[in-house]
């Protein structure tokens, strides 16, 4: 147990753990978590704990990383409703994509045929926000408080006006 290489191998573990902690994007952190699991299995095997190494490889590297990838995939997304005829054009969507990239969200445009179905989708929590054209400008409505705060600081009023709609008591503030 006193061979020199053991010390080097054990030193890899805090190194990769530090790498994992310094990641900001959740998906990148997941991949580094798998990497940490591989190195942890190596350390366990070197120190003679074969069963722990096997468990780390099966659970830490495969199961937990896959499950967390599915969790990240289904949670970190901004579903944005839009009318069918003004889909995917204009400065607003370009800006929204940039904001989403900044906050490591995925941006998903969902088109609806008319205004009523947009509002119904917001009420049914199918989408987090939607935009529709008002006169010459866009009008964006969101039901998520945090999203309202982010968009308020990032988007200028010349591009879109912004409204937060509280669904719990459904009072509209304009």
């Amino acid at each position: 147990m006193t061979e020199t290489y053991v010390y080097f191998i054990v030193a890899l573990l805090p190194l990769s753990a530090l790498m994992l902690v310094l990641q900001v994007n959740p998906l990148h952190a997941l991949v580094i978590r798998g990497l940490l699991g591989a190195i942890a299995a190596l350390v366990d095997a070197v120190l003679g704990a074969a069963d722990v190494a096997l468990t780390e490889a099966l659970v830490g590297t495969m199961l937990s990383v896959t499950l967390y990838a599915i969790a990240v995939r289904s949670s970190l997304v901004l579903r944005f409703g839009v009318l069918t005829d003004n889909k995917d054009d204009g400065e607003l969507f370009h800006l929204l994509r940039n904001i989403c990239r900044q906050y490591h969200l995925r941006f998903k445009l969902i088109s609806y045929p008319d205004q009523e179905s947009l509002e119904a989708a917001l009420r049914n929590k199918e989408i987090q926000a939607f935009a529709h054209e008002q006169d010459t400008n866009y009008h964006t409505i969101t039901r998520v408080k945090r999203l309202y705060e982010i968009l308020e600081t990032e988007l200028s009023p010349s591009i879109t006006s912004l409204t937060y709609q509280n669904l719990t008591n459904s009072v509209e503030k304009h």
Partner: peptide, 20 residues
């Protein structure tokens, strides 16, 4: 014992990578 663990880690790691 460690050798068997190595073989299992080899195949399981690859399978998990493909899934991911």
């Amino acid at each position: 014992m460690i050798g068997v663990v190595a073989i299992i880690v080899l195949s399981v790691g690859n399978a998990g990578l493909m899934l991911l």
